[in-house]
Structures are given as C-alpha cells and as structure tokens.
Simulated scan of single mutants.
Amino acid sequence: MSETESLLEFPCQFPIKAMGKSRDDFDAIVVEIIRRHVADIREGAVTTKPSKAGNYLSVTVVIEAHSREQLDAIYMGLTACPDVLMAL
C-alpha cells in the first residue's frame, strides 16, 4: 500500500503495543527497539499493564509517526525480538 492509499495522515500520534512474558526489563526492551526508529519518546508516552495472572506484560508506547515505512520498521524490529510475543 502506498502512502497515498494509507488511512493515516502523517505525522500523527500512533500507539504501538507489544506483549511478552512478564519480566522486569520488558518495557525497556520494547522502548529500546522503538528508539531505533523514533528520535523522541515523550515522558508519559510509555504505559504498562500486566495480565490478570501476572504472567504477561503489555507495553504501549505512543509515538509521533512520520511514515508507513517508519511504522513497518518498528513492527519488524519488535517481531524479530524473541522476548516480544505479539506486536499490535
């Protein structure tokens, strides 16, 4: 899909969610991967939520997205990480 066919208008605020097994540094792993593609992650842009049983952790990072290619690169980086079970 070309950028002209995209439903998103860039730049825009875009939430990226990654889920993995609950561990102390999972949020730092997710943020480090996203930082490779985003120059500025604002304070308060990262939220975490444990699963009911506490076995998994969901990390949401709201970024200012500049292109579909940037988002694709972020998702490719997240899904390539063995600690990330799912990225939305």
Results as ranks from 00 to 15, higher is better:
1 M>S: 08
1 M>Q: 12
2 S>D: 13
4 T>M: 04
4 T>C: 04
5 E>W: 06
5 E>L: 13
5 E>H: 04
6 S>G: 07
6 S>C: 14
6 S>Y: 03
6 S>D: 12
7 L>C: 01
8 L>S: 02
9 E>W: 00
11 P>C: 05
13 Q>N: 03
14 F>L: 13
16 I>S: 01
17 K>C: 04
18 A>Y: 09
18 A>K: 09
20 G>I: 06
20 G>K: 00
22 S>P: 01
23 R>D: 06
24 D>A: 10
24 D>R: 11
24 D>P: 12
25 D>R: 06
26 F>H: 07
26 F>G: 06
26 F>V: 02
28 A>I: 11
28 A>D: 10
29 I>F: 00
29 I>K: 08
30 V>Y: 01
31 V>E: 09
31 V>P: 07
32 E>F: 02
32 E>G: 13
33 I>E: 07
33 I>A: 07
34 I>A: 10
34 I>R: 02
36 R>F: 04
36 R>H: 11
39 A>E: 15
41 I>T: 09
43 E>M: 13
43 E>W: 06
44 G>M: 14
45 A>H: 09
45 A>L: 13
46 V>K: 09
46 V>F: 02
47 T>E: 15
47 T>D: 08
47 T>F: 10
47 T>L: 05
47 T>Q: 10
47 T>P: 03
48 T>N: 04
49 K>L: 14
49 K>Y: 12
50 P>Q: 11
50 P>N: 02
51 S>W: 11
51 S>Y: 00
51 S>V: 12
51 S>E: 02
52 K>M: 06
52 K>F: 10
53 A>S: 10
57 L>T: 14
57 L>F: 03
63 I>K: 00
63 I>G: 01
64 E>Y: 00
64 E>T: 15
64 E>P: 00
64 E>F: 00
65 A>S: 03
66 H>D: 07
66 H>Q: 10
66 H>A: 04
67 S>P: 12
68 R>H: 09
68 R>A: 06
68 R>Q: 14
68 R>F: 01
70 Q>I: 10
72 D>N: 11
72 D>C: 00
74 I>N: 13
75 Y>V: 08
75 Y>T: 08
75 Y>A: 05
77 G>T: 07
77 G>Y: 07
78 L>R: 12
78 L>P: 10
80 A>R: 11
81 C>N: 15
81 C>F: 01
82 P>W: 04
83 D>H: 15
83 D>V: 05
85 L>K: 15
86 M>H: 11
86 M>Q: 09
86 M>T: 13
88 L>C: 07
88 L>V: 08
